[in-house]
């Protein structure tokens, strides 16, 4: 079994192994629970949520991730404009009742934590940094576990997808 990995190498997309995904999921769930966070999302910089937990019924994870990834990328350019050699490591938005903390996980991934005023931002920073360290450790183990995503996209799926598009788009 496999899971997502956004690397595009010569047109081939690669995916995580089940074991790696379980480790990622476990880290995200642990962070969410320890922070009593509303939502924790581990995503790639293209805006795809990979692993998430918390109150995902009330918060649209896909929209949150798309805007979060966009925000993070924009700050990378701000870093460039002020001649900062590396991108900023985290972004923090403080609201009246909800706060958002975003930080990078290596160059290709990010973590989004939504929490309320009962959780100290220092604690969020510390525990998220710990989780990020664990996750980057997993990534170094990924080499050799990759599979082609094309194996997931079989001919039957491709054929049925075309028909479903016609039906949904009323073509």
């Amino acid at each position: 079994m496999t899971n997502s990995f956004n690397n595009n190498n010569n047109g081939n997309r690669w995916v995580f192994s089940e074991a790696s995904f379980e480790k990622i999921n476990g880290t995200v769930n642990d962070l969410c629970s320890r922070l009593k966070a509303h939502v924790v999302v581990f995503a790639d910089m293209n805006g795809y949520p990979i692993s998430f937990c918390g109150d995902t019924r009330r918060i649209d994870i896909n929209n949150l991730t798309a805007v979060g990834a966009g925000t993070f990328s924009a700050t990378a350019e701000m870093a460039h404009l002020i001649h900062e050699k590396q991108q900023f490591k985290y972004i923090y938005h403080e609201g009246e009742s909800q706060n958002i903390y975003l930080c990078n996980v290596g160059e290709d991934y990010l973590m989004i934590v939504v929490f309320n005023k009962n959780t100290a931002v220092g604690m969020v920073r510390a525990l998220t940094a710990h989780a990020v360290k664990k996750l980057t450790g997993f990534f170094s183990e990924l080499q050799g576990e990759k599979e082609k995503a094309t194996e997931f996209l079989d001919d039957e799926f491709r054929s049925l997808l075309g028909k479903e598009l016609d039906k949904s788009f009323r073509l």
């Binding site: 997309r13 995904f21 990979i50 996209l153």
Partner: peptide
Amino acid sequence: MHVDPFRK
């Protein structure tokens, strides 16, 4: 493209 076989 993003593939997630766990959630299919």
